[in-house]
Design a binder for these strands. Structure first.
Lengths: 200, 200, 200, 200
DNA sequence: GATGAATGAGCCTTCATTCAT
DNA sequence: GATGAATGAAGGCTCATTCAT
């Protein structure tokens, strides 16, 4: 049975749209209010400040993406395969949702220094996820020992940049074009010799 | 004989400091003015808007880094070696100058959508430089054929992310720790088998 | 029972005073705010810009004068008599209220080109009113056929100029001195031979 | 022999153009400078302030129009005829030169209160000219006694308004349409019975 | 006589946040 | 729980005028 979403949720939805479109600074609270059936006071009842609302939105989206990744790799036990699947899921998820991508990859920065901590936090989750599986792969002996801490961030940065590129220029197509290259290069970088990639 | 720097230069220097410290939005023109021996009108005589001033600073820094890279690789003819040197130069240059790094890697985003084009422009220069050498390496047969367009952005993103990490957390040390890993992983990713890296 | 005027009204009252005294450009929004028990933001909540506030004031005053005229001629059915009454009402109304006169007749110009449309609009109302009655008079045969379009503006201009003169030099007294002359000359101009003027 | 116009003249020419187009407040001294081959300092050498420059332009134009009128009526000795000729000259002169008309009739106001005195001065000249001839006509017995002071301003206002109308709406054509009506109505207003108008 | 970089007070407007009702 | 009018500090920018060179 579908019930009406919470006031909180309705606010976050509206906020997501506007933040993604305009970025943090160029978004006026009034505009978010306008996209809601609430009053300004109502919004401020649920979120104490613009910053907190933004963070809430970012957290929410980060969570959803993380969940999607976790779900996708849940069945797979091989570390390398899990990394491949994770990459695929990220590119697919963000490639399908420009808005999500824009918020997660770009707009977050536009808060200025206030965002530093949040940015670290958000990106770290995904780096961690990668690092865990890289560590596993090393343990398993699938790949030679490496500094998985650094490498995981390297991966995050690589994917991030390629997707930002796509956001701004429309190329390369995330799944069709970027994914195969990212997979091959990143995996080879950690020592996985080009077996046939999953789904490829 | 040292002469007094241009008014333009003095403004840009002051602007660089403040923008790096506070980001675009949190910087007030008044603060830049305060760091100069000029009046507000004087500043606006040289730069028509905050945005333009910011762009000028970014361009300037981008140019200086690009020049440094070009100078460092000028003597080397081997493509792979040039890529290694370029990586080294970037990590060294930015690793030595937090302020430069912060402006080039982070603060640019904080302009909101207005920055999109500039960001593309700035990052593309460095991606191009990488791409050219990757293309060369492919031609020379030093590495197998790859999509150098995507890969060059992958490299930029990887370096970018690792450096941002360092900016915020202080780790890993750009030259001592990050550089060797980035070199090894990125080169191996494009098919360069771990020879002994230059300087390593 | 007298209730407190609307915020909007209180702002317009304050604005009327300052605009009339200083003209559009020499009026600072801060000064209007100072004359109100509001904050600047409060004012801007009700009026989106200085220009809009000015227009609102002008419209308001124009409306009031028009209403006064309409009320004064409502009982009279003879076209010529209506014109005489309208003239009287205008001279009386503006002659009693320098501030109103100054705003309506002079300060509007001081907006620069932005005011053109508003000026046309405002003056046209009064010209229309005159034209309608001139047309009627022609139909009735009270006066010979004339180009009532042009003549109505001629009347507006004549009254306008005489009143501006009074505003600046204090002479001639609008009702006592100017009115009889204006009536006689303007009416004779359209072919009404000097009957005894109403009230004279 | 044509010599290069004075610096003063070149400045006034440029100023005339810009003031007419944008009005006093919306004209920046820089823009006038730009239309000149001079520097800002150069301009300020010749005119001590924006206001003075504006006044100089207005005076110049006022003079030229007055001269033109005086020249046109010089040959005629009949007062009524002179009034008719003056009207014709004004409508012709301004009807041919929108820019002139706009400056003389409209932009002057846009200075705010600073212009009051100048406005009085400028319009008074023309009112005086009219008054003198009306006085003459009364003396001659061509028209019955009237308050020529007020009537002369009435005339100025009437012409002014009709021309402003034309400036903004393009109608009525000053010479072809407006002139005959103005002549007939204004002259009849002072008691001149519709003889055949001169030139008509 | 000229130049044009520099001055600096002043202006309109924005907007996150609050709070009386 | 809601409302939305009100707050007020802050910010980017303009521009007539000056003056060292």
């Amino acid at each position: 049975m579908k019930t009406r979403p919470t006031a909180r949720d309705r606010i976050m939805e509206a906020a997501e749209v506007v933040f993604a479109e305009k970025g943090y600074h160029d978004t006026a609270m009034d505009e978010i209010v306008r996209r809601t059936d609430m009053s300004k006071g109502g919004l401020y009842f649920h979120f104490p400040s613009k910053e907190r609302l933004f963070f809430a939105v970012m957290d929410h989206l980060g969570n959803r993406l993380a969940e999607r990744i976790n779900a996708s790799i849940a069945q797979e036990s091989d570390a390398i395969a899990r990394l491949e699947i994770a990459l695929t899921t990220v590119l697919e998820s963000l490639g399908k949702r420009r808005r999500l991508a824009k918020l997660l990859l770009v707009q977050g920065y536009s808060m200025g220094n206030a965002f530093e901590k949040k940015r670290i936090e958000t990106y770290s989750r995904f780096a961690s996820l990668i690092k865990d599986n890289l560590d596993l792969a090393v343990e398993e002996g699938s790949i030679p020992p490496i500094d998985t801490e650094i490498v995981s961030h390297l991966w995050v940065g690589a994917v991030n940049e390629v997707l930002i590129r796509w956001l701004y220029t429309g190329k390369p197509a995330p799944v069709k074009e970027a994914l195969p290259v990212l997979k091959k290069i990143l995996l080879r970088g950690v020592g996985v010799e080009a077996k046939v990639s999953i789904g490829g």
